[in-house]
Every structure is written in structure tokens, then in C-alpha cells.
Simulated assay, not measured.
Amino acid sequence: MTAETAPPAWMHEQITAEQYDSWPDEQCSGIEIVDGMVVVSPSASKRHNRLARILANALEAAAGPEWNADTDFDVRLQDVPLTNRRPDVVVYRADTIDITPTRPEHVLLVVEVVSPGSETTDRLVKTDQYAKSGIAFYWRVEQAVTGIPLVYTYVLDPASGAYRDGDVFAGVVKASVPIPVEVDLGQI
């Protein structure tokens, strides 16, 4: 392997929050940091991105002026060792729009759209990490073989620090918490 084709050192060494924060945005795009190590995320499919965008738009419209809903930015779960996740959709306090990094206390809801290759991470690892960081609500979108997405909702139990199962929606999401919203994901 030549120097031109060798992976950069930052892909093999634990990095700090200060190092990460000094990187340009294009270097941070498409990666997450778990326990200080870079985890490269494959590009999402058009279906995945559309599901995330439809949900973000519906949540944004339903949330009112106190909350924003966006896609594709980091949530800093912990500083040491650095853990940054990049949820598919994040509902966060509107008054924190200019605060970087976004922290769990700014976040009401995170949504992950499960794709091939992210099943274990989205179903188990991220669920545990988001709960332990104190994010009150987690939704997981499964792209079922029927073509009708399934949305599993979870609510944080503050006593145990773990999520308890909430509602499950097939196609049409009619959630009452954390934001009353109705959105049809079956017509993508």
C-alpha cells in the first residue's frame, strides 16, 4: 500500500472532541465517532433518505415554534471517549439552533431508519446509547419487505435509564407523543 492509498491516521487512532471539532464539515460527513474511533457510514439509499425527510418535514410542521426537526448532523452523546452519532432525524429545541455541538439535553426525539448493514447498530447499540444519554424518545423505522415501513417508538424510563416499548405503526404514523403528528410513510 502506497502513502497515497493508505487510510489516514485518524481512522486508526482514538480521537478527542477537540480534534474532531477542528475538522472541516466535509471530513465529518458520513462518519460517526464511537468511543473515540471513526465509524464510516455507507451512503444511504434514496428510499432511506426519503423516509427520513418525510418524517423530518412532518415533525417540523407539527412541532410548533419551540422545536426544530432536521437531518444529517451530529449529536454529541459524550466527550470522553468521544461519541458522536448522526441520527437520521433529530427533533431539538429551537433555541439551540446555533449551539454546537448538539447535546442530548437539547434533543427531544431521534429517529433511525434501519438499512442493510445498520440493523444491529440501530436496533440495539444506538437504542442503548440514546437511552443512557437521556434522550426522551427514540423511533426506529424498519423498511419491511412488504414496502410498508414499520415505525417502532420508545419512551425513556428515567428510573431505569432504558427505553420502554411504545406504539408500533405500519405505514401511517399517528403519534400522540412526544409531538402529536400524523404522517403516511406508506406512499413514498
Rank of each mutant, 00 (worst) to 15 (best):
Y130G: 00
L108K: 02
F73G: 13
V111H: 03
P24H: 03
I97R: 15
S176I: 09
S43M: 15
R76K: 11
E32N: 04
E182Q: 12
I135F: 01
P104A: 11
T5R: 14
T102Y: 03
I179C: 04
T16N: 02
G171K: 10
P104S: 05
A56P: 08
E13L: 01
Y152P: 10
S160Y: 07
P180R: 13
V113P: 11
S133K: 04
T16G: 09
E26N: 00
R47I: 10
A94I: 02
F73I: 10
A9K: 14
S22T: 09
I179F: 05
V91K: 06
D98T: 14
I54C: 03
D167L: 02
H48T: 06
L156W: 08
D128V: 12
T100D: 15
E66T: 09
L108P: 09
L51D: 12
N57S: 15
T146G: 05
E4L: 14
S43N: 12
G64T: 00
T146R: 12
R164W: 04
T127R: 15
A62C: 05
S160M: 08
E26T: 02
T121M: 08
D167N: 02
Q78V: 10
R103L: 10
Y130M: 00
L59H: 03
R103W: 12
H48E: 04
R53M: 15
Y138T: 01
I31T: 07
T71I: 07
S43A: 11
Y130D: 00
D128Y: 09
F169A: 05
P87G: 03
P24W: 07
P87L: 01
K174G: 10
S176V: 14
V111Y: 01
V172M: 08
F73Y: 13
T146W: 12
S160Q: 05
P180K: 09
P42L: 04
K174S: 12
V177C: 10
P116Y: 02
D128N: 10
E112C: 08
A9H: 04
P158D: 09
P81M: 06
P178Y: 12
V168S: 11
W10P: 03
T71P: 15
E66A: 15
A136L: 04
R85D: 00
D74L: 09
D70Y: 12
S22R: 06
V181F: 08
P101C: 04
Y130I: 00
V38D: 06
G134W: 03
Q27S: 07
M37H: 11
R85S: 00
D128K: 07
P24N: 00
E66Y: 14
S133T: 05
N49D: 14
L77P: 13
G64E: 01
E32T: 01
C28G: 14
A162H: 07
R76H: 09
K46I: 14
G30C: 02
I97T: 11
T5I: 09
G64C: 00
N68Q: 14
A52T: 07
L108C: 05
W67H: 06
P87K: 02
F73Q: 06
F73K: 03
